[in-house]
Design a protein around this nucleic acid. Structure first.
Lengths: 201, 201
DNA sequence: GAATAATCTTTCCACTGTCTAGTTCATCTA
DNA sequence: TAGATGAACTAGACAGTGGAAAGATTATTC
């Protein structure tokens, strides 16, 4: 007999939600389905997440945190000295490994950015796109150019991740006879370095 | 008294759907709401679009077609000789002017890419990112590099559009004191040109 | 002028998010 | 240790949803 109090229902609901996301897609991710998957009444999630927005936001926060950790780990394991590209590789690899989760992390109309966990996790993740060498100096102007550089890199990586996940680039890939998909993606990622420092500062 | 046959219900439903999208956001865009807005029974849309997916796909097709026309018109009106950047400006301007519609156009789990209208409209729109000078020659290999270039540009523009629409870049913008937002965006768009031709072919 | 087909309505079902009220349990205070 | 307080969870209800089925109305075609 299941005890009345679950004990760690919050975590159980999060992993149930992610399981549904993988198995049946984002349209099947509902509060009730999550509760069913966790073997709990259909209103139980409300106490931990309030809303469907709350559940999705918490899941997104977990996603950003894991993205951050994964990209860091991949970069530190990489042989290359170029940490920026290493982080980018990790970023794209994460998105490809968890497509449903990644897309959920950009479902703006179902995310509550006032939730501190989510905001800080996302900020951490994207701090990897500003290399330490470009960090703003103390008395200097706060690195306007590096901020714009970070925006450009983020845009490129995010767009690439989205189009890859949705298979929108595979049509173009099939047009290149005998091309190695992973190699092409690596080439696209490498172009990230060309985005910084515009012609007219 | 309204006649039993509407006459041009398909178009009426599409514009009703877009009105809802602008007014109440994508979560409020339902089959029933669209039918209500058009003053018709809630199952009437099914005959023209079959599904919610069908309605969304038709709306997305219209969006891609208009994006294509808009970008072309903007580019032909532009003074610059650089058509690529001119198209890119039009692309971003369209996305910012119709944020709900643009996001809907990338709602992959609600789009039916087997619908020919949608597929061809999207293809037309993205053909603008492959300048005529880079078009594949007849007897040559079909421009592997230009295909990858197009992918890179598309990724960058799509990511930029998404992050702009969702306001994810405004935090960074506010960190640059006294920066003109439009000027910064123009600078980001101009970087598109730096993406082509990777270091090692 | 009938037959046929397209268009639209009515009715129905299972499902959803969220509200309200109640039940069970753990923990903290006296 | 007893009792109160509040957190965690359940049960039931409501309006809204997508979609299927079957019927009504009008255009079109032969």
């Amino acid at each position: 007999m299941a005890p009345y109090h679950h004990g760690s229902l919050r975590e159980a609901l999060l992993s149930a939600a992610e399981k549904i996301l993988q198995r049946e897609g984002i349209n099947a991710l509902t509060l009730r389905a999550t509760a069913r998957e966790a073997g709990v009444s259909h209103t139980a999630p409300a106490h931990h997440f309030k809303d469907l927005t709350g559940l999705v936001s918490a899941l997104a926060a977990s996603g950003f945190a894991r993205l951050h950790d994964f990209a860091r780990a991949e970069a530190s394991a990489a042989e290359t000295k170029d940490q920026l590209v290493a982080h980018a590789r990790g970023y794209i690899a994460f998105a490809r490994a968890h497509p449903g989760l990644y897309k959920l992390m950009f479902r703006s109309e179902r995310l509550d950015w006032d939730q501190p966990d989510l905001a800080s996790a996302a900020e951490d993740a994207y701090s990897l796109l500003t290399p330490a060498s470009e960090a703003p100096l103390a008395h200097d102007r706060p690195g306007q150019r590096s901020i714009a550089d970070t925006m450009a890199r983020w845009s490129y990586l995010h767009g690439l991740a989205m189009l890859l996940i949705d298979g929108r680039l595979s049509a173009g890939m099939s047009m290149i006879p005998g091309a190695d998909e992973d190699l092409l993606i690596a080439d696209l990622i490498a172009r990230l370095e060309r985005l910084h420092r515009p012609s007219h500062p």
